[in-house]
């Protein structure tokens, strides 16, 4: 028996809107630790890792570990029917073939339940090694989204370079080139507007902007995004989910042969 009650149901709505276009089907894993998902996009270039810790739920019951295969597009359709202020409860029976999403309005005057069929998904779980990243950039998530969107109107790939001068996002295309440099900025009044650059070693990596733009659909989840770079590793674009966990996107680099 599984029963997860999330007062801030909008978080789950936002998570689904962030990943449904990147991953078609995925297994949601439930354990005592929390509600999690790891999935690659169909071309195995990007990987999504989601964790919602059990402590973040108002009620969390998971009698035994359960893996539920879901079509994320269909799950997003159902969660879209929840109001932004609704409390969302996810329910499933052990060994059952469906999952129920229950939506309660804040004053309990509307209660809806949506039942969705589960599916068998053969997914490979990858071991993500703990890494010391050469550079970690923390910046406003809206700024990161803006940069990815702007650059994708010029070119298809972005070169992200971190030096002691700052972080540079560059692209080139048929019409010309673009470079955007952000410097560390901790002097702002609000911490969510800060840009913080931690650099051990200068690093420069090339990525497909199409994927970066897809990741930025998670912008409503967090005011800040963390971009972690190492020369021989996929970039990690992380959105923290308030008090509960994270949504991380890993993107393999483009490498000159």
């Amino acid at each position: 028996m599984l029963e997860l009650r999330l007062v801030q149901g909008s978080l789950l709505k936002k998570v689904m809107e962030s990943i449904k276009d990147l991953v078609n089907d995925a297994n949601f894993d439930c354990s005592a630790t929390g509600f999690s998902l790891q999935a690659m996009d169909s071309s195995h270039v990007a990987l999504v890792s989601l964790l919602l810790r059990s402590e973040g739920f108002e009620h969390y019951r998971c009698d035994r570990n359960l893996s539920m295969g879901m079509n994320l597009g269909n799950m997003a359709k159902m969660l879209k029917c929840a109001g932004n202020d609704d409390i969302v409860t996810v329910k499933a029976d052990d060994g059952g073939d469906c999952v129920t999403f229950m939506f309660e309005s804040p004053n309990q005057d509307k209660i809806a339940d949506f039942e969705m069929k589960l599916m068998d998904i053969d997914s490979e779980h990858l071991g993500i090694p703990e890494a010391e990243y050469e550079a970690i950039v923390r910046m406003p998530s809206a700024e990161f989204a803006r940069i990815c969107k702007d650059l994708s109107t010029i070119g298809d790939t972005v070169v992200i370079s971190v030096t002691k001068e700052g972080v540079k996002f560059s692209t080139r295309g048929d019409i010309g080139t673009a470079n955007i440099v952000l410097r560390q900025n901790t002097s702002v009044d609000k911490p969510e507007e800060a840009t913080i650059i931690e650099m051990e070693t200068p690093v420069s990596l090339t990525f497909a902007l199409r994927y970066m733009n897809s990741f930025t659909k998670a912008t409503p989840l967090a005011s800040q995004v963390t971009v972690s770079l190492s020369s021989e590793l996929p970039v990690v674009v992380e959105y923290k989910i308030a008090e509960m966990g994270y949504l991380r996107f890993y993107l393999a680099p483009k490498i000159e042969e």
Partner: peptide, 14 residues
């Protein structure tokens, strides 16, 4: 131009 790598090149299957 540079060639797109896959995630599985970096992370091992469990």
């Amino acid at each position: 131009g540079p060639k797109q790598c896959t995630i599985t090149k970096f992370f091992n299957k469990l």
